[in-house]
């Protein structure tokens, strides 16, 4: 067969695969927007649910998700970044380090409902935090740890080895080298990982199912030990537990959730683009 034709077929198949990836994304977003847009209003975004959640807004669920995600990141970002720095810059390649690496990889592969069960037994029951924001945040935090550790390590690895050599050759200690010749240049990559984890934590239902999420709470949460509503769980409830709800309320809630995650992911992309533009 002619090489040119072969090439055309090859690229055609690749293009078709790419198209196949884009189609569901466009379809999902299109469906949610067309069916849910009519529900979006100031009242929907900023008021409490009414009439057994058939009317009113999703404000407490937005607030709850905000608290949960902030708590999760507050916990997992510092710990994840510090662990990544240790593993990448200090740890010797020995049996212990390999074991830790294996653990991190496996942590990323655990399904989210298992994290939920783990959070229930450890934070809710054992530490007696109860079904609360703190239990839910910690569970989400543990779930995002492997992502943060992995992206941070990649960001650290992307800093050329020669920067470290230069720093050492100028009499800097190992810590000074990490602090001044590695971290500043890895920061955008670390932030990208953090933002992607925010998106993941905001959208998960299973980890918060047993640890924090409430069917309905009449007030906004006042302390970390309160229960709260959260967007993904709210969506699950109004879709399955509440009969005769207006369809646009369901899709409107989905739109708010997807919209929030999308905003976070787009900002991650912008950070990464700025990062890539910087060449060394």
């Amino acid at each position: 067969m002619n090489v040119q034709i072969k090439q055309k077929i090859g690229f055609g198949v690749l293009f078709a695969a790419t198209l196949l990836v884009v189609v569901p994304i466009v379809a999902i977003i299109g469906l949610i927007i067309t069916k849910g847009w009519s529900a979006i209003s100031w009242e929907f975004l900023f008021s409490m649910p009414k009439d057994g959640m058939r009317a009113g807004g999703v404000f407490p669920a937005i607030v709850g998700t905000f608290y949960l995600v902030s708590g999760a990141i507050l916990f997992s970002l510092p710990i994840g970044v510090m662990a990544a720095i240790y593993l990448n810059e200090y740890a010797k390649d020995n049996a212990l380090t390999r074991l830790i690496n294996l653990a991190i990889i496996n942590l990323a592969g655990v399904s989210s409902v298992v994290y939920g069960l783990f959070g229930l037994s450890l934070f809710v029951v054992f530490f007696k935090f109860g079904v609360s924001i703190i239990s839910g945040s910690l569970t989400l935090g543990i779930m995002t740890l492997p992502v943060i550790i992995t992206t941070t390590r990649e960001a650290l690895r992307a800093v050329p080895k020669s920067f470290r050599q230069v720093s050492f050759s100028l009499g800097a200690t190992r810590w000074q080298t990490v602090r001044h010749s590695v971290l500043p240049f890895a920061l955008p990559g670390i932030l990208t990982g953090a933002i992607l984890s925010i998106g993941r934590a905001a959208g998960e239902t299973a980890p918060i199912l047993f640890t924090v999420a409430a069917f309905y709470v009449p007030d906004l949460p006042k302390s970390p030990f309160d229960q709260t509503m959260a967007l993904p769980y709210h969506l699950y409830i109004i879709s399955t537990q509440i009969p005769n709800i207006r369809e646009d309320y369901r899709y409107g809630t989905a739109l708010v959730l997807v919209g929030l995650v999308l905003i976070v992911n787009i900002s991650a992309t912008i950070v990464r683009a700025r990062y890539r533009r910087k060449k060394w």
Partner: peptide, 19 residues
């Protein structure tokens, strides 16, 4: 090691300015 490297400077094959 740090004091040694302050007294014994080094220039590498490729110029490596930090950004």
């Amino acid at each position: 090691a740090e004091d040694l490297r302050k007294r014994v400077g080094m220039i590498f094959a490729l110029p490596i300015p930090l950004p």
